[in-house]
Design a protein around this nucleic acid. Structure first.
Lengths: 132, 132
DNA sequence: CTACGACTTCGAGCGCGCTCTAAGTCAACG
DNA sequence: CGTTGACTTAGAGCGCGCTCGAAGTCGTAG
């Protein structure tokens, strides 16, 4: 029943960010001040880790820190912030879908270009191939 | 048969970047020095526009400018740079696929969270909902 | 008791990709 | 001929998201 807690180094390894970044997130208010050992050292539990991982997901999919911050503030308000959180998530869902489309269409463009390298005797010309 | 050329402003509108950015791309070597009117003003033709659009696609899908620069240099070498260009494109294809996976899995996470807002009487708790 | 190493805070610094400013030139209009 | 306005260059500045350095504290090993 002992709760497993991690040092900042371990938490960093677990979440895939650096210890510097964990402290940074805390000081800008993206994460709450975490529990401390009596030495003053941070101790991370499961909920903190899950929160960081979720933030990184949002960030990796293009959400800027300012928006994550807004979401974090709403989360701290509990039920009162539910509508706002939902709106932010819906907005981000839209943006993810947009990015998916962008990636997919560029993937196609690249596949086409690559196909040229396979099929042509001479490599495809690119804009202004001369070099002086 | 007259070639249609655009001013920097028009080219910017056409490609979706600012005139500032067009000049910036030229000075860092991402785009070749473009033709000039006798006034000294830049004149953009079709190939230049297509090149810029392609660069923006690469960039929008996560390619850093340094890599685009490497690609541009290879393109200027013509056939001699074909292998290198191909390798860069293949690498970027891999990264795009990775990003697609990341976006897709995060999209699922968000869909799940959103589903909670629809089904629960109380909104879902988030890490450390208290606000002092 | 001492030395070590992992932690702490605070603040400065950095790489990226623009973005903007200042000062000047040129062409066309009235 | 004078004004307007779109362009030119070179270089400084900026927002983002970390990243690092300095200086100090704590707790365990030898």
């Amino acid at each position: 029943m002992t709760e497993r807690t991690l040092s900042i180094r371990e938490a960093a390894a677990e979440t895939g960010v650096t210890a510097h970044t964990l402290r940074y997130y805390e000081r800008i208010g993206l994460a709450l001040p975490v529990a401390r050992a009596k030495s003053g050292h941070r101790r991370y539990g499961e909920p903190e880790l899950r929160w960081i991982v979720f933030l990184r997901r949002l960030h990796a999919t293009g959400m800027p820190i300012r928006k994550m911050l807004a979401y974090a503030r709403l989360a701290r308000k509990g039920p009162a912030g539910a509508d706002g959180r939902r709106a932010l998530l819906e907005e981000h869902r839209r943006e993810i879908k947009e990015r998916l489309g962008q990636l997919t269409s560029t993937l196609e463009v690249i596949e086409q270009k690559l196909a040229l390298y396979d099929q042509l005797p001479a490599p495809p010309a690119e804009h202004a191939p001369r070099e002086r």
